[in-house]
Design a protein around this nucleic acid. Structure first.
Length: 296
DNA sequence: TACCCGTGGGA
DNA sequence: TTCCCAAGGGT
C-alpha cells in the first residue's frame, strides 16, 4: 500500500481535474444551500436534485424564507424527488434554525445532529462542506471506495461497522485545509469512477494500489431481495402524495381514495385506507372538513 | 438491529 | 423486463 499522503495527492489532484461543477460547491454557496443539497441528495441522484435545488434556492434563499411558509409548500416544491418526509423534516429544521439559532445554520456537528432529518452523515457533511471543518464524512460512495481500495471487496457490507469508521478517521489528512477536499474527492471518485456497477478502473487515479483489482475484481455477493415494489405501501403512499401535490384544493376523502393515480396501483381498499391513514399520521397529509390536502 | 420510507434511470 | 442503485434518517 502506498503512503497515505500519496493517496491524498492522487485522489485530490484527480478531483481538481475531474470533479463536477456543482452549484452547492461554489465558494459563494451559503451554508443553507449546502444543507438543502444534502437533504435532497439523501438516496437521490445529483441529476434529479439539480433543478429542484435551483428552484428552492430561488424561492427560499434562507431558512427563514422556508420557515415562513406552510410545510405543504415544501412538500409540493419537493416534487417527485421521493421520500417526501425529507421535505417535511427540512421545513422543520428551518423552523428550528430560526427559533434556536437566529436563522443561521449551526456549524457544530452536535448542533446539526439535533435538527430533524440530520443524521451522522449530514451533520458531518454540512460542517465540512459548508463550514470547512475537518469532520470525518462517510457516505455510501466513500464506503465503497474504501472497501475496494483497502479490503478488496466489490461492495461494503449492508451495515456500517466500527472498523470502517476507524479506517475513515485514520485516512483523514492532518492538514485541515486538505481534509474537506479529501472527503469531497473520495466521494466524487465513488460517484464518477468507483461506481457500484461497471466501475471505470481505467480512469482511476489509484487503480495501481487497489486491493480489489489486485484480488482480480471478485464479484459482489448480493443479499436476498427485500420486498418487491409493486403493491407495496410505498407505492400507494407515493400515489396519494402525487394526487395531493397536484390538487389545488382539499380533496374529499372518497374522491382521493378513487383518484386515478391511486387506482392505478391496483391496491385493494383496505391497503388504500391504511396508507392514507399512515400519511395523515406522519403529517404528510392533513384532513379537514372539506377533504384531504397537504399539511398547513 | 432490521425494517420502513419514493422515485426514476441504467445495465 | 427485472433488478439494482442513488451524498440516509428514524424508529
Amino acid at each position: 500500500m502506498p503512503q497515505i499522503r500519496q493517496l491524498h495527492h492522487a485522489i485530490t489532484d484527480w478531483f481538481a481535474q475531474n470533479g463536477r461543477d456543482l452549484p452547492w460547491r461554489h465558494p459563494e454557496a451559503s451554508a443553507w444551500s449546502v444543507m438543502v443539497s444534502e437533504f435532497m441528495l439523501q438516496q437521490t441522484p445529483v441529476v434529479r436534485v439539480l433543478p429542484v435545488w435551483e428552484e428552492w434556492m430561488q424561492r427560499w434563499p434562507t431558512p427563514a424564507d422556508l420557515a415562513a411558509e406552510p410545510a405543504g409548500e415544501a412538500l409540493r416544491a419537493w416534487g417527485r424527488l421521493g421520500y417526501p418526509r425529507r421535505a417535511l423534516r427540512l421545513h422543520a429544521a428551518a423552523t428550528r434554525i430560526v427559533e434556536e439559532h437566529d436563522g443561521a445554520v449551526p456549524r457544530t456537528p452536535d448542533e446539526l445532529l439535533a435538527l430533524p432529518g440530520v443524521g451522522t452523515y449530514t451533520a458531518a457533511a454540512v460542517a465540512c462542506f459548508a463550514f470547512n471543518q475537518p469532520e470525518v464524512v462517510v457516505d455510501t460512495n466513500i464506503r465503497r471506495v474504501h472497501a475496494r481500495l483497502f479490503t478488496g471487496r466489490a461492495l461494503p457490507e449492508p451495515s456500517y461497522t466500527a472498523a470502517e469508521a476507524r479506517l475513515a478517521a485514520d485516512l483523514m489528512p492532518d492538514d485541515d485545509a486538505l481534509a474537506c477536499r479529501w472527503n469531497a474527492a473520495v466521494m466524487e471518485l465513488g460517484a464518477l469512477v468507483c461506481t457500484a456497477r461497471s466501475p471505470k478502473c481505467d480512469a482511476c487515479p489509484v487503480a495501481a494500489s487497489c486491493a480489489w483489482i489486485a484480488a482480480g475484481q471478485p464479484a459482489p455477493h448480493y443479499t436476498p431481495k427485500g420486498q418487491p415494489w409493486a403493491g407495496t405501501d410505498r407505492q400507494v403512499r407515493g400515489a396519494f402524495m402525487a394526487a395531493l401535490r397536484d390538487a389545488e384544493a382539499p380533496v374529499p376523502r372518497e374522491a382521493l381514495l378513487r383518484a386515478d393515480v391511486v387506482q392505478s396501483t391496483g391496491a385493494p381498499e383496505e391497503q388504500r385506507l391504511r396508507c392514507l391513514g399512515s400519511l395523515l399520521a406522519d403529517g404528510l397529509a392533513h384532513e379537514g372538513p372539506t377533504g384531504v390536502s397537504l399539511p398547513h
